[in-house]
Structures are given as C-alpha cells and as structure tokens.
Design a protein around this nucleic acid. Structure first.
Lengths: 194, 194, 194, 194
DNA sequence: AATGAATGAGCATTCATTCAT
DNA sequence: TATGAATGAATGCTCATTCAT
C-alpha cells in the first residue's frame, strides 16, 4: 500500500474516532484499529495525537473550502451566494456528522492550544462569508452598515450551533432544505416584518 | 463554615480552573487547591469530575437565566427584548470569560456524554429566545414565517461564536455595545437593503 | 505507615531491583511490587526513575561514608587507616551485593547524565582515600612523590573492579580478609621485592 | 562494497554511537544512520542490538590485545612490561574515548546478561597482567606473596577508574605520561617510604 | 465533615525487529 | 544483498477516586 493511502486511511479513521469519542477520550489504539494499522505506524505519519486532530480538521475544512468556492464561482448575486454557502454548509454537516463533530472539537476543545487563527483553514473558510458580504455591499444590495467581520461570525456561529444540535438529537424536525431556507431568510431579511 | 459555602466555593474554583485549562486538562487537585480544600472533600459534594462540570454549567447558566429574565420582565416590546437578550449575553461573556469558556466546554466537549438536552438549563436559556420570537409574532411585529425553533439556535449560535473569538483574541476591534447593536440589527433587519 | 518508612522502603526495594536487573531493565512496577506499594505511590516520594537511582546511590554511599569515618576516627597511623578503608569497602561489598551493583550502575550507566561529580557523595567517599594519603605524607610515612589525586582513583578503582568480579562469579577463591590483606599489601609495598 | 567492509562500518558506527549515548539510549537507527546503511541491513550482520555491543567490545579489546602483545614481545623485564601495559592502556583510553566508554558500558551495564567471563577477550586482556606478574615472580623480581589473580584486577581496575574520570571531566590535571608514571610507581613500589 | 496519602487503571509514545519488495 | 515501512510489545508517569484516620 502506498504511503499516501495510509496517510489518508489514518485521517479517515481518526475523523471517525474523534467524532465518536471526542479528542480526549479517543485512544491512539482506537484510531489504529479503525485504520487497520499498527499503533506505531501512526507515528510514521503524524508527530503526536494533537497533530492528527489538526490534520483532520485542516483536511476536512480544506475540502469544504474547495467545494464551496467551486459552487460560488459561477454565481455573482451575493444573495444567491449567501444561500449557497448556508445550504452547502448545512448539507455537508448533515451528510458528514463526523466532520461536524471534528469542527466542534477542534474549535472548542483546543481553544487553549491553538491561539493563532489567522491564515488557517478555519479563517479562510469563514472569510468566504465576509467576502460575500463585502461583494453585496459593493453591489449596493447589502446594507452599508453591516460589519462583515461581525456578520461572518454570526452566520458561521448560527450554522455551527444548528449542526451541533443535529449531532445530538438524531431526529430533527426540519429538513436541510427547510432549515437552510429559514436561516438564509433570517440573515437576509431579519425577523421584523417589512 | 457552612456546607453550602463549601459547595459554592468549589463551584467557583472549578469555574476558574475549567476555564483556564479546559475540562480534560483540569485536575481535581487544581480545583481543590483553588478552593482551599482537600482533594477528598470535593467528593463529599460531587460524585465525580464530570458532575462538577455539569454543576458549574447549570449554576452559571441558571444565574444568567435569572438575570436575563429580570431584565426582560419590565419590557414588552419584542424588538427591545431581543436587543436586551443579545446585549446581556455579550456583556456577561465579555465580563466573565470563565463563564464563556465553560459554556464552550460543556456544550461541545461533552456532547457525547450528555444527550438529554431537554429540560435542562441550556434549553431553558435558549428558549427565552424562542419565546421572544413567538411574542413578536403574536404582536404581528415579527414575520410569521420565522421558525422560533431555528431562529433561537441561530441567534444563540451567533452570540456564542462571537464570544468564543473574544476568548481567543484578547483584543477585539469592537466594543460590546457596537457588537450587540450590530448583531441585533442583523437579526432584526437582515443584511439586505430595504 | 509513616512517610519516612515508606520512603525508606522504596529505597530498599529499588536497591534490590536495580541490583538484580540494572537500571534500564528495572521497571517502576518491579520496585513498587518489591516495596509492596502502588506504582503511583513511588511518585509521591520521587520525581522520576532516575531520581530513585540517585537517591539510592547517595543514601548507600552516605552510610558507607559515615561508617568508614567512624572506623577511621580512632586511628592515627595512615598505614592502618588505608588497611581499614580497604577492608571496610571489600567487606561491605561482599556483604551487600546490591550496594556494589548500584555503585557500578550509577557510576557507569549514567556517566552521560550526571557530569558533576564534585561535592557529591562519591567524591566525598573517594576523598577519604586522598586525605589518608596526605596524612601519610605529612607524617613522612608515605612517599612524597605520590599524587593523592591519582592514588585515590587507583585504589578505589582496584577495589571496585574486585567487587565487580565478586558480583559476577558467585564463588571466589579468596576470602575478604585475604583479598583485603593482599590489596593493602600491593598498595603499600608495591609488587617489587624490596 | 564487500561484506567485510560493511560489517566493519557498522562496528565503527556502533562504537561511536554507544560511546555518545550509552548502550540503552542508543537506537539501532542511530547506528544505521551513522553507518550510512538501512536499519534492516544491520540485521544481516548482527543478531540483535546486544550482539553489536559484544562485537564492538570484542573487536576493540582484540585490537588492544594485539597491540599490547606486540609491544611486550620485545621486552623481557617485567618491570618494564608492567610500565608498558599501563602506559599503553592509558594512552589508548585517552586517545580513543569511545573505546573507554564502550569498555565501561560493556563491563558494567551488561553484568547481568553475560556471566561467562572466562575465555573471552576481556579475560585474555587482563591475563596479560597476571602473566607479567608471574614472570616477575619467576625472575625473582616481584614478591612471591603477590597473588597474580588479585593483582591483575587491582591494576586493571585502577586504570579503568582513571580512564572513567577522564571521560567525565574533559580537562584533567595530569598528562598521560605523568599518570602512567605515577600508577606504575604506585604498583611497583607502593606508597610507603622505603 | 474533612483530610490527604495511597491506589492502580489507563495511555501516548518509542524502538528493536521483521519482511515484502 | 539491501531497503525502510510496518509492526506491536513494552513502560514511565498521571490523576480520578477511595478510605483510614
């Protein structure tokens, strides 16, 4: 088996295990078992347990960034772009609960460990939102007094919390589409009657 | 010293320690030391480490619920109520970073451990938001097609993510007031130009 | 059981285990078992495995220093003093093979770890020899051209090597008395015929 | 490259690595790297890690035996022979600290592993000393009551301890020549005034 | 109620050795 | 012969929990 395969296999296994048990409760031997690899093999590809978590996170978010950008590329209307982002995010989180979980873990459990959130994949991902906001403002479609740096956090946070709940309660009342529509609506029009 | 005092003292110490080190990295002896109590004493008041975390969370959120309700009691305009909730939450999180951290930890790290989120303090707190939404809909001030169950998640998630970032970056560009104003604005009016 | 007892018990157990298996092959759990103590208990009294070795060594050599000094105190003839030192050392090494072994281990295995051999127990012990030499020179009994700093190493090395062999071969041809007599003889008179 | 070259290359690399890190702290991969050979290759020439140590020791001591015997061959005076042995040993240990270190390690760390010290290179080397003593006794130059089996240990031990100290303290007060002269003197004449 | 010494299960990581290529 | 990726047994140390005092 080629090196690249094993690296990917470990990442995949780790994603699963971290999602199921959480970072601190996951044992290296769990990951090794899931990846059908010896414990020691993991250390040929990663420096330590935390390094695996970061790799998983970066890889998964990286994939999300690429796919989201691909979807947005064809679109020029910031309203549509916002809807696409929201729908894509929720769709992926629903489809891939492991990913949702790893984001939760990485973003919260390790707050104290990774302080530098500039120029990392998470920042890049969230900045897609702020660039959509800015584009909308340039096109005079979005209000000028919206602060992109705050709006991006609000939107990402909203999506993340919704995905978190999905991961806890297996059944949810609304479909992805309904939820995405609703969230897009809230962020575009607000809750006030016109 | 009365029993109730010691219980409170341990909670207070634990809040501090969990916030500083995170739940998994916190040691019982750290909490005991902080509370100026013997390690074993903690087990006279709590069943185990996780029980402490839950107690801390419930207590802190409980306090937040009481204070928020007290603020909302005097108000009848759902627009104002929403603003009050948002401002209160952000103010508390800014003032009490420990609390913000414990919410982060409790809500994410222990996803896998505590599945039942009905009838707990977190739910009660978030349901303040949905009841505000419902009230606004009854008063024909908020749009009818807003789903309170989703909106409450979106708003709480937005606030929580903003507080999370505050906890990572010591300096932030905007004041609590500016941020609260902005978030209230986004959720009331949306990002679209009228 | 009092703290002091447990500390001593662990030292005693460690001496035995290190002697039997060598420092690197000894497991903490071996020492714990021998001391009839939990693994973790060891870490209440020592910082780490190496710390145990150093403690064992310092304690054993310390005891040797005291006893040897007590024996020498009453004596003023440097010839007798040399004989006393040699006899005492060999007697102790024969009686307490663990001690002999731990000296071997500490002195050689950890050469690379502990470089500072000034002001430690080993140095103090060996310096008893050089002070005997100096005393003999002052009394015009020992030759002036003997360098005490070299002679002390030669004598200690000779004794140590003999003790080492005793630890390997269970049976030895000569008694402690014969050997001590012989060694004293060699160092006092040399091998040359008068 | 011929097999014999690779074998020698590994021995040479191992000597260096053992000396620098000690046997237990040395990794096979360190030796492989130093020898510019793959890890697995080492196992084509040696059975295991310990086998390498033994080989290094045997080879180094073997070389010493040959060279020492060559020097002694031309000499018939046991006094001179003793001086030659002592000088040669100290010179080699000063010149080749790796060798000194490996002797230290092999002789002490592995006491418990290798019990059979008859008919091995170490014994052969030390027996050069006893044969010098015996020769001196036959020639009526050395005292009859010297026990060669004890004297050889005493002399070797003295030399080894001196070399050990050299390996710890980089600077030493005396030159090899001074030291060799002094040690020869002590063992020939003793410390007593005539 | 309070203490804190003692416990011992638990786990990340290392590294000698193997073996398919 | 030679390689080096893969293996998995082995262990020092931590820390939540207990319990004799």
């Amino acid at each position: 088996m080629k090196t690249i395969d094993k690296h990917a296999k470990i990442i995949r296994a780790a994603t699963k295990v971290f999602a199921k048990k959480g970072f601190f409760n996951a044992r290296i031997s769990d990951i090794a078992k899931e990846a059908k690899v010896a414990d020691g093999t993991i250390y040929l590809y990663f420096n330590n347990k935390f390094d695996i978590l970061v790799s998983v996170f970066e890889q998964e978010i990286g994939r999300l960034i690429e796919q989201t950008n691909a979807l947005l590329e064809k679109e020029n209307d910031p309203r549509k772009m916002l809807e696409i982002f929201i729908t894509k995010h929720l769709t992926e989180m629903k489809k891939n609960k492991n990913l949702a979980e790893v984001i939760q873990i990485e973003l919260r459990q390790t707050n104290k460990l990774v302080k530098d959130y500039r120029n990392n994949k998470y920042s890049i991902y969230v900045d897609i939102l702020s660039s959509i906001i800015k584009k909308g403002q340039e096109q005079k479609i979005f209000r000028d007094d919206i602060l992109p740096g705050i709006a991006k956090r609000a939107i990402f946070g909203a999506l993340d919390e919704i995905a978190r709940i999905w991961n806890i309660n297996i059944e949810s009342n609304y479909t992805v589409e309904e939820t995405a529509k609703q969230v897009t609506d809230i962020f575009q029009l607000g809750v006030l009657r016109p």
